[in-house]
Design a protein around this nucleic acid. Structure first.
Length: 617
RNA sequence: GGGGACGUAGCUCAGUUGGUUAGAGCGCUGCCCUGUCACGGCAGAGGUCGCGGGUUCGAGCCCCGUCGUCCCCGCCA
């Protein structure tokens, strides 16, 4: 292939086929760079081979050609050190133009153009670019590594249906009308959830699937309407069993991408994630938030007009550099404007320092924040309580170049916002991320080094079981209604008395602030499952109507089981250093869920609609 | 559903305060060239300034609407 020839191949007779990447015509001497997915080789066509020369003259970029010739070591000084094939060239004896090409709207020989609309319309040309070829090759290697790992661990890959039953909970379904059954619809699966649980009931105690899932919701850079999950389920697992399997296949996947991961990953509870990062998917490449509540005496709170009981939170954005007075003030007012009228304010630590009265406070804040930078030290993690840590003991000294942000609730700030008592932590966490992005170039922690340090994994455990929906005035399942609550919470009767306090045996795996996947230990007792449906406001009749087949199945000897699903697209995206899923999916959709190449969706004929018993409103 | 950015040649972009015939680089076409590899040289073609309406003596530029792409919020059990 075009990228494989080396100096030791000199003298070999070869046939190369590929696309003309570039043509350099020197009159009686023509160079063709021939490209296929393995790389590029220079072909030389001289006028001694008159027929080949004439064809080389006619060749244009993206023509498909076949070359028969001999590999030659290049003379001294003619090497191209920028190409792996730069020490050789192929001297053409015969040249065939297998196919012509129109002038492409952009050249596959260059880096990605800015205009994604054009890239997606001519996706077949975009995919010829080396970057996309590498991404899709990486994706294939990662998927294969995961399959190999799971099969080696005794998992069976079993396919579940694409055409299934609509479940109105959760994301909107893509529907498929039935021709045979007028007015009835299949739904494309949002996940194979119920099928894989039924496979556990059937005794396939280790199942996995590289499963396509469909959700009719609005898109983001990291969300496509159809996406691929590594979906797995096990019988008789502990939470730790599932963590070990997931860590195992992620290690295999990242090894396929040339990155050696250290396991086990850091773990923290949902509550700790909120308290330390203000979010359930912490990006630990940046220092955590720190509670400064105990640094402020009641007297200081009064003087500085800070609410007595609410948290005071601070964090550091490292390496921002010294800000001028004007720049600091601009930043403060920008952040204050972002707070709107929610009652939060900033403490200007730099200014406090200049005031004799407040200088000790400023120093105390700085001292407290200097230990806030976590590392990925596995020993530290494992020495903590089993599976739980709040913060690493390892600290990074704070330097003057670090930006200190301290958020204070003003007197009169509400303790709840949208019925969420954690809103202050979440708001400050959002600010932390916002400033982290703003100063990304300064702190450099989002930069790609290609090593394991680029990838900060963690498990977030003990998610809440229920979420209050203020608009509908109902409790919803935070994960999904098949998730098992903690035994303690069931025993304490919290399913009925105190839904907000019920913890689920649900967990997420997070990488660099992106949710890679989530899973749970499931409910395996029919009575508990029925109870959960009731606690979600479903009558027994409704539950039977929607999930009757599943409740029935649960009554025939269901083993304890649990599992997890990880987004393959997201894994590959982060591993490839891409910022959009579109870079790792061959034929993705736009933000409006349109395929610009095939132009889908489209209206269909009246005839098709009639067969499906449909009328468009 | 909401907010923001962008839309000028095939591509990447510039276009001043509203003022003559809308520019550059790359690409493309033709010719020349035996050592290039982002080849080079000469010449040339290429525009519904996303679309529609308005203001104006005059609109790429101002206003209104609309379409498309991207990012974010909502949403994503």
């Amino acid at each position: 292939m075009c990228g494989e020839l080396r100096a030791e191949d000199a003298g070999r007779d070869v046939v190369l086929m590929g696309w003309v990447n570039r043509r350099r015509d020197h009159g009686s001497l023509i160079f063709l760079d021939l490209r296929d997915r393995s790389g590029i080789t220079q072909v030389v066509v001289g006028e001694q081979t008159a027929e080949a020369h004439a064809k080389a003259e006619a060749a244009r970029p993206e023509y498909v050609v076949a070359v028969k010739g001999r590999v030659r070591q290049r003379a001294a000084g003619l090497n191209n050190p920028n190409m792996v094939t730069g020490e050789i060239e192929v001297v053409a004896e015969e040249l065939l133009l297998l196919n012509e090409s129109k002038t492409p709207p952009f050249s596959p020989s260059e880096d990605a153009i800015a205009n994604e609309e054009v890239r997606l319309k001519y996706r077949y040309l975009d995919l010829r670019r080396a970057g996309m070829q590498e991404n899709l090759a990486l994706r294939s290697r990662v998927a294969m590594a995961i399959r190999n790992y799971l099969v080696g661990e005794g998992f069976l890959e079993i396919e579940t249906p694409f055409m299934t039953r609509s479940t109105p909970e959760g994301a909107r379904d893509y529907l498929v009308p039935s021709r045979v059954h007028a007015g009835q619809f299949y739904a494309l699966p949002q996940s194979p959830q119920i099928f894989k649980q039924i496979l556990m009931i059937s005794g396939f105690d280790r199942y996995f699937q590289v499963a396509r899932c469909f959700r009719d919701e609005d898109l983001r850079a990291d969300r496509q309407p159809e996406f691929t999950q590594i979906d797995l389920e096990m019988s008789f697992p502990q939470q730790d069993t599932i963590f070990r399997v997931a860590e195992g296949f992620l290690t295999a996947a990242f090894a396929a991408g040339g990155v050696a991961l250290k396991t086990p990953f850091l773990r923290m509870t949902y509550d700790d994630a909120i308290k330390n990062y203000g979010i359930d998917k912490p990006d630990m490449r940046l220092p955590a938030m720190v509670s400064l509540s105990d640094v402020l005496t009641p007297e200081l709170r009064t003087t500085l007009r800070i609410e007595q009981e609410l948290p005071v939170l601070g964090f550091v954005i490292p390496g921002v550099g010294e800000l001028s007075g004007t720049a600091r003030k601009a930043l403060l007012s920008e952040v204050r404007a972002g707070f709107g009228d929610c009652g939060l304010d900033l403490l200007d630590v730099a200014r406090l320092k200049t005031n004799v009265e407040f200088a000790p406070l400023a120093e105390a804040i700085e001292a407290k924040l200097s230990g806030s930078d976590p590392t990925h030290d596995v020993d530290t993690i494992m020495n903590g309580a089993p599976g739980l840590i709040t913060k690493s003991n390892v600290s990074t000294p704070k330097s003057d170049a670090d930006l200190i942000i301290v958020v204070t609730p003003k007197i009169g700030t509400p303790t709840m916002w949208n019925f969420d008592p954690q809103w202050i932590w979440k708001r400050v966490g959002a600010l932390r991320l916002q400033l982290g992005v703003k100063y990304a170039e300064k702190h450099g922690r989002f930069a790609k080094t290609g090593t394991e340090t680029d990838f900060k994994f963690c498990w977030v455990t003990d998610f809440p079981m229920y979420e209050w929906d203020e608009e509908a005035k109902v409790w919803n399942a935070a994960h999904h209604p098949f998730t098992s609550p903690h035994e303690d919470d069931i025993a304490a009767g919290r399913l009925t008395n105190d839904k907000g306090a019920v913890r689920a045996l649900a967990y997420d795996i997070v990488l660099n602030g992106t949710e890679l996947g989530s899973g749970s230990i499931r409910i395996h007792r029919q009575d508990v499952q029925a109870e959960i449906f009731r606690s979600l406001g479903m009558t027994d009749a409704e539950a039977k109507d929607r999930f009757g087949f599943f409740l029935d199945a649960l009554e025939y000897g269901t083993p304890p089981h649990g599992g997890i699903a990880l987004g393959l697209d997201r894994i590959v995206m982060i591993l490839a250093g891409a910022t959009s899923l579109r870079e790792v999916i061959a034929f993705p959709k736009t933000a409006k869920a349109i395929d610009l190449m095939v132009d889908a969706p489209t209206p269909v004929s009246e005839q098709q609609l009639r067969e499906l018993h449909l009328r468009v409103r």
